[in-house]
Every structure is written in structure tokens, then in C-alpha cells.
Amino acid sequence: MEFTHFNEKGRAHMVNVSEKDETKRVAIARGSIKMKKETIDLIKDGLVKKGDVLSVAQIGGIMGVKKTSDLIPMCHNIFITGSDINFNIGEEEIEIEATVSTVGKTGVEMEALTAVTTAALTIYDMCKAVDKDMVIENVRLIKKTGGKSGEYIREN
């Protein structure tokens, strides 16, 4: 396996994707934020003073998708054709799943991972006044399709 973000002098560079074929590309990422049961209850009941936590986190995640190339140095600025964020509320955690799609020369894995992370950070920001023990964890790529390397599906 060869790292592609280094030039012939060993210095960082953005990969030239101009010769790549355009394909439909989709990436799905997941992560979670653990918190106290009381914090989950506040979110469910709409009692967090800053507002509707999951609605704001959904918008934050989508904004993260759109700003990924501004945050990650070697990411290409790509045209996003779709982005969706879903939440699964458990007793002491919220699982976040982001699906991002494009038709282009490079994939959207980083955008999906950024969406999950930004949504989790938004939840943290909105709830930190009542729960400073929250933990964001297990942010990972679940699936990606398209491109030269084809399909990837995480096992387990």
C-alpha cells in the first residue's frame, strides 16, 4: 500500500484526480455520543435550553459535509449531490449515521466522517451545560461505493 499524499520529494500535496473517471460515490459513516440518561431524557422531551438538539445537530452535520475541504488539508472541494443524517437514541447514547453522495472523481468518505463528528460536537455543545461527561466515540466508515477501489463494507 502506497500513501498518495506525498510528492516525489516526500512533501505533502493534494492528489491530482483529473485523470480519474467520474462515478457515483456514496459513503456511510457512524459514531456515537454517550451521555447520562437524564441528558437523553432532556433531549427527548425537548427541554434543552439551547433548543431542538437533534434538529440543530442534523443541520450542523450537513454543514460539516459542505465544509470538509476547508477543515481537512488534502481533501478536494467536491460537489455533494446528497447528504442525510439519522439519529438512533438509546438509553445512554445517541448513535449518529451520515450518508453522503456525489458523482465525481473522488469519494465522500471524509465528508461522511466529518458529518458524524460535527453532529456529535453539536450535540455536545448544546448539552454541555447539563452534562460535561459526554464522550464522542467510535466514529468510523461503514460503507463506501464507487471509484477505482469499488465497494467497501465494514465487517461487524
Rank of each mutant, 00 (worst) to 15 (best):
I89E: 02
T102M: 05
K105Q: 06
K132I: 11
G107D: 02
K132W: 06
E92R: 11
D125Y: 12
V116P: 09
E95Y: 14
G90S: 05
I89Y: 09
V108E: 02
N138K: 14
A112P: 12
D125T: 13
E97V: 15
D131Y: 03
A115N: 03
T118N: 08
M126R: 01
I89A: 02
E111Q: 13
I89N: 03
Y124E: 04
M126E: 01
A98F: 08
V130E: 03
E92M: 06
S149G: 01
G90A: 05
G147R: 08
E95L: 15
E111C: 04
M134L: 11
Y124F: 15
V100W: 07
V108Q: 05
K144D: 00
S101M: 09
G146A: 04
A120S: 10
A120N: 01
A120E: 02
T106Y: 01
A115W: 10
I94Q: 03
E92L: 01
V100M: 05
T114S: 12
T106R: 04
I96R: 00
T118F: 11
A119T: 09
G150V: 10
T99H: 05
K148D: 00
G150S: 04
A98D: 01
V135Q: 10
A112D: 09
M126P: 06
C127H: 03
I123F: 07
Y152W: 13
T122Y: 11
I123T: 06
Y124K: 10
V116F: 10
E137S: 15
V139M: 03
A115Q: 07
N88D: 15
G150P: 09
I136E: 00
T122S: 14
L121N: 14
K143I: 00
V100Y: 11
K143W: 05
V108I: 01
A119P: 11
I96P: 04
N88Y: 15
G146Y: 07
E91M: 08
G90Q: 04
R154W: 05
K132C: 05
S149W: 00
E95P: 12
E97F: 14
D131S: 07
T118C: 12
E111D: 06
T99M: 12
E91C: 05
M134H: 08
M110A: 03
G146C: 04
G107C: 01
M110F: 06
I96C: 02
E91V: 12
L113T: 07
S101N: 11
E92F: 06
M134S: 08
D131E: 02
A115D: 02
E151I: 14
I94N: 03
E109C: 06
K148V: 03
D131F: 08
I136M: 03
E97Q: 15
K132M: 11
K132E: 12
A112Y: 13
Y152L: 07
K128P: 09
D125G: 14
E137D: 13
